[in-house]
């Protein structure tokens, strides 16, 4: 158990560094899509929600909490990726077309 925990902490530390490196390269012009995109990624908690809602032999409260978690996380995932894609499709370089 504690071995697992330490292993997960290693992952956490490395992922934070990786994130800091990657994100610092994102240009200012993409900061809003970056935020809505990372909104979608934070919907990853859907994994935990699926495990909670699908566990079976649950009390009504468990079911309610799990289902609500699935709903909120899905809103984030679906809404986040769609709106990011919508925004990014507008970022165009179009000087060539006009002249």
């Amino acid at each position: 158990m504690s071995g697992d925990l330490i292993f997960l902490m290693f992952i956490l530390m490395l992922a934070v560094f990786l994130g800091l490196e990657l994100i610092s390269k994102v240009p200012a012009t993409l900061h809003t899509p970056l935020m809505s995109g990372s909104n979608a990624i934070s919907g990853i908690t859907l994994v935990g929600a699926l495990l909670a809602a699908g566990a079976g032999d649950s009390t009504p409260l468990s079911i309610a909490l799990g289902t609500a978690a699935v709903t909120l996380a899905t809103i984030n995932v679906v809404g986040g990726y769609l709106v990011t894609q919508r925004m990014l499709s507008m970022f165009k370089k179009k000087r060539g077309d006009r002249k």
Partner: peptide, 9 residues
Amino acid sequence: VAGALVGAS
């Protein structure tokens, strides 16, 4: 991993 990426962002 994903949570840490968002946190860093």
